[in-house]
Structure formats: C-alpha cells, structure tokens
Nucleic acid binder design. Structure first.
Lengths: 225, 225
DNA sequence: AGGCGCTGGCAATTAGATTCTCATTTTGGG
DNA sequence: CCCAAAATGAGAATCTAATTGCCAGCGCCT
C-alpha cells in the first residue's frame, strides 16, 4: 500500500501521515476520516460513561462503521486505546506548555507544570476546561496498560517526561533545586502527581484528599527545594 | 501448608468468614481445607508464572477441586483475588511490624516501615525472604482492583494505612516531623512507596530506578523532616 | 471496461467466566 | 444401620466480548 515515489517528498511528522499512502489521496482522506470517527466515538463513549470500559461493538456502532473496518485500522483494542492516549497526551502537553511559558523563574515553571499536570490526570474540577475530555478514564487505562505493556506507555508519555526533565535540569542549573539525578526526580514527580487521583479514590469518603498544591509541596521539599 | 485446622477457633479474617459462613460448623473444617487449597493453588500459579493472569480452570485443576466447588466458596474471581490480597497483606503487616519494633526513635521506625513496605510491594530482591510469595503480581492486582473497586481495596489495605498513620502521629508528637495532616501524609507515602515499582518499570531500560532509599529520602524531605 | 482493494454485514471462532444438571457421596438424626 | 437433605464432582451449557473469516457490492485507477 506504500509507493516508492511518495517517500521523496517532505518528511512526515506523525503516525497519521505515515499510516496511509499519499498517492491514493482520495482513499487516504476517506481512511483518515474513518479513523477519526472511530477515535471520536471512543472519546464520546468515555465521556458519557465516565469509564474506559466500552466494547468494540459500541465504538463501531456509534461511529457507524463495521467491525471489519475497525480491524482494518487497528490491530486490536489496545491499539485503539494507545491511540486515544497518545491523542490525549498530545493535547495535555500543548496545554501544559502554555501554562509553563509565561513563567520565567525555574521553580515557578516547574510548579506550573506540576499543578497543570495534576489537573489533567485527575477528575475534572469544578472549572471545566473547554471541550476537554474526561481524562480520568484515560488515566485509568494508562495504568492498566502500564501494567501489561510498560514500554509502550513509556513511549507515549515520553513528551511529558522529557518536558519535566528539562524543567528540572533548568531548575538545578539555576541552583533552585538540588537533585543528584533529574531523571529519577522526574519519575518521583510523575508518580506523585499523575496518580494521586488513585490514592484520593482509595481515601474515599474519609475526606482526606491530596490536592495539586499538596502534591507540589511534597515534591518540592522531597527534592530539597 | 496444612495449617488450617487451628483457625477454627480464633477470629478468622474477613474473606475466610465470608467464604465459609454458608456452611455451618460441621462441614466447616472440610470447607476451610478446601478454601485453603484453592488459595494455595492460586499462590503457586502466581509464583510460578510470575503473573496474576491465571484462569479459574487452572486454579481448580491445580487444587484438585471442581468448578462447582470454587463457586461454592467464592462469588467470582475477584473474591479470590481479594482473598489472596488480604492474605498477602496480613503477612506483610506482620513482617513490617517486626521490622519496626526494634527501632525506638520515631523517625527510624518510620524509616524501617517505609523501606520494608517498599520491599514487600516491589519485585523480589536478590535476598529472597523465606518461602515468601512473589508479590509483584499481587501488587499489580491491587492496582487493577483499586481501579474498579477502590473501597474494597482500601478496606484490605487498612491495616497498613493504620500502622503508617500511627507512626506518623508518633513522629509528629516527638517533633521529628511537621505535618498538618498525618492522614494526608500517609497517602503520599503509600503512593510513593507502594507503587514506585510501576514507575521503575516504565523507566525500563533507561537504567534510572527509584530504590527504597530514594523513596524514603523523598518522603522524608517531602514532609519536612 | 476490468481488476483490485476497500467495505459492509454477519456468521464463526475463541477464551474465559459463570451457571446448570445429574449422579454420587457425606452428614446428621432416629 | 437407614433415609432425606446437603454437599460434591464432572462436565455440558450459556454468556460476553474480542477477533477472524467469508462473500458480495462498490468505487477508483489504468
């Protein structure tokens, strides 16, 4: 399905481009629309049901496609999930970057990153952002996927990890923080921030909750700030 | 492995009661032996395969029971999983307590707790403990179960949480630590320590790993020690 | 026009969990 | 020791959801 003469053109930037041949532009357009519909349908289901447990059938029906079609584009359910996760992380990275940019001091930048990331991973606060998706279900499956395919998840989350390491390096360089290994520090921060919703859920009705601020304070001092 | 009979009198754990309460005292002994066999078989499978993904069939065959029998004692697979988790946590609490007792200073006690808990939740180190089970698969479970039934998991982990809060309260009382809310602090510590194996797995081959020591330092400073 | 890949619609297959049925065995009471 | 009720064992049947297979149109490219 891939033609040699297509490869000499501009460098493709994402999986979307590489996935479909350009010589068959009409087919490609159709295919992309199709894939997009599947993704949209899946997102809708997640938002509506507040859970990541939909069936392929649901997705197919909602998107008015056929099972046959689904398996034409995705090797299986996991592939769909990864695609959703990738898409979602793309959005969040963009959003977080916007949130970090206006700050100039290394520590404030790091703080902005932390707080925003926390918001992205947890349940929607009272202040719903634009037409953003309900991200909790996605966090849930990132957890499940991390258990059965950690490398894949790591790859998908790489953009976030990279940004975090950069911010940490900057902070260390500016002497605002001391950390022997920023990558290790990044792991600790990610864990604390991205999955605090899990512990909050476990805490349940006891009323104790770890807020974005709490998480930030904990990380900051934890790294000796 | 045949240490079941003496449980008849002492206070049985939650799942044990639930599982056996249906049949009354006479059959009880037999029933308990049966339940125990199922649990042993499940533990064996987990240890051998290093994963928590066995089928009920496997368990039934290994324990020389029948499906009928399995469902007589457990309402479903989740019940079995919870039973295993409960059992495993019982062991760990015991072990952690032994590890904490010899220490007298509040901070050292807290440290002992943290380090030991970390060892319990992660992959087996080079120093295998007694006939201890491979606990990583169980940690994986606990994570999955925490996603679909958080309250239940919270209940099962309560003994650990309680111990931690006590240690924290003691440390705060001794002025060795300042924390506005020890329960919140407990959540953060649990999260950092119990699930660092997940992040380590995500870090994968990059070589960066969070050790028990790292986790402890992070928590200690994070809480302002 | 003709061929071929893309598609829709569906039946078939697979894997596991959970239930059901029936023949046997065990238990408790007389 | 004998019987009715409860407990079991074996294995078939049912169910859910994912994944594949099959076949007949349809539209695009040459």
């Amino acid at each position: 399905m891939e033609r040699v003469d297509d490869l000499q053109d501009e460098k493709a930037s994402g999986w979307r481009q590489r996935a479909v041949s350009r010589s068959l532009s009409a087919v490609r357009t159709r295919a992309e629309r199709r894939v997009q519909r599947l993704l949209d349908a899946a997102f809708e289901l997640i938002d509506e049901r507040g859970t990541s447990e939909f069936t392929i059938q649901d997705v197919v029906e909602r998107s008015k496609q056929s099972l046959r079609g689904f398996y034409q584009y995705f090797d299986g359910k996991d592939e769909l999930l990864f695609a959703l996760l990738e898409e979602s992380i793309r959005e969040s990275v963009e959003d977080i970057r916007e949130s970090v940019e206006p700050e100039s001091e290394p520590l404030k930048r790091l703080r902005a990153f932390t707080i925003r990331l926390h918001e992205w991973c947890g349940p929607l606060g009272t202040q719903q952002k634009r037409g953003a998706h309900n991200r909790l279900p996605l966090s849930e499956f990132s957890l499940q996927l991390a258990i059965r395919d950690p490398e894949r998840v790591a790859a998908v989350m790489a953009p976030i990890s990279r940004m975090l390491v950069e911010l940490l390096d900057a902070a260390v360089a500016a002497d605002a923080l001391r950390a022997t290994d920023t990558r290790r520090a990044a792991l600790l921060i990610q864990q604390t921030v991205m999955y605090s919703w899990l512990m909050n859920r476990l805490a349940g009705k006891t009323g104790v909750q770890v807020t974005a601020e709490d998480a930030w304070e904990f990380c900051l001092h934890g790294l000796g700030g």
